[in-house]
Structure formats: C-alpha cells, structure tokens
C-alpha cells in the first residue's frame, strides 16, 4: 500500500491496525464505528472494487468478524501498479450477543446480497438494508446455520430421516 494512504488511515482513525503486506495482501483491522468511513476513504483512494463481504464466527472470543475485501479496478491496461495487485482485507469485530451492524450499501451497491446472506446465515442485522429477507434458505432455523454452534450433523439427524445404509440387508461380495 502506498504510504500516504497508510498515513491517512492511521491519522484519521483511532485504533486502526495495518499489517504489513504479505504477497499482495494487506490486512486492516478497524473499530466497528469507523468501518464505513474507512471504506469510503479507501474507495475514494482507488480501492473501488468490493469483492466480498464475509463473516467469521469466532465463537470462543465471543465475536463476529466482518470482513470486507477490496481491490482496485485498474484505469488502463498494461499499466500495473502494485495497487491493482493488492487485495485489502478490512476487518472489524462485533459482539456476538448483539449482532448488529450498519449496511455498506450506500458506499458499495453490491454489498446488498452479501449483507443479506450474512444476515441469513449468521443472524447479523444490518441497519439501513432495504430487504433483509431470506436469500438461500427454505426453512426456519433457531440458530443461524453458519454459526459455529450450529451442528450440521446433529441438525440433519434430528430433522431428516436417516439415510438407509445400502447393503445392510445382505452382504454380497
């Protein structure tokens, strides 16, 4: 990452941590209050492609980690700066008990389905999101299914009939 941007980030936001680049990958950890401002600052400084919003359930630390992955759309072909190669992983943590956050749609339009998915799979509410309706799932779940305390195998054995084991009847060799 270019140093001026780094300086800008560290001076503008309290408690922001920028890890040194590791093979085109920079990890930034920011406070949850400043995430939207960091996103728009990064966007205005060239990192204008939101590739992914992800969520990790760190159950032992009682927090959800929201992950925004940004990269830069290049301006012209054949001119590659390190910037276009760089992927920024912007992370923030929210309390697991209070799974609420703010939507990033005003800054990146394509955040919409990602946030909808995280809402559905992790049960995190995004304020300002226009439609937090189910995206993939058909059933209702007490625990959102991608949380670590959702036991897939137990759920399957509780809800569905067991898979009949083929070959139980006769042992044919």
């Amino acid at each position: 990452m270019k140093d001026p941007l780094k300086d800008k980030l560290t001076s503008a936001f309290d408690g922001i941590q920028i890890q040194p680049a590791d093979r085109n990958q920079i990890s930034i950890t920011a406070n949850k209050e400043s995430i939207l401002s960091v996103l728009s600052l990064l966007k205005s400084n060239g990192y204008n492609h939101l590739a992914l919003i992800s969520c990790v359930d760190w159950i032992e630390e009682k927090r959800f980690e929201l992950v925004y992955i940004l990269s830069a759309y290049m301006e012209k072909d054949k001119h590659f700066t390190d910037m276009e190669k760089t992927n920024i992983i912007l992370k923030t943590s929210i309390y697991r008990e209070k799974p609420q956050f703010i939507s990033a749609i005003p800054i990146f339009e394509n955040a919409e389905p990602y946030e909808r998915e995280i809402h559905e799979l992790y049960g995190i509410h995004f304020e300002g999101h226009p439609r937090l309706t189910p995206l993939f799932l058909e059933r209702e779940y007490k625990t959102p299914p991608f949380r670590k305390d959702f036991d897939t195998r137990k759920y399957v054995s509780d809800v569905f009939d067991p898979i009949p084991f083929v070959g139980k009847k006769a042992d044919k060799r």
Partner: peptide
C-alpha cells in the same frame, strides 16, 4: 458495472481490460 462490482465479460464488454489473469 463498476459501481455494482461487475467483473469478467460484463466489464470487458464495456471496453475495460480488467482481467485478474492480467492484474494479479
């Protein structure tokens, strides 16, 4: 396309030579 995070043909059909094989 840029605002909505388009890639691939969607972007290349608008004249942008954006291709991860090239970029990274």
């Amino acid at each position: 396309a840029l605002a909505m995070g388009g890639t691939g043909q969607v972007l290349r059909a608008t004249g942008m030579q954006y291709d991860v094989r090239r970029v990274e």
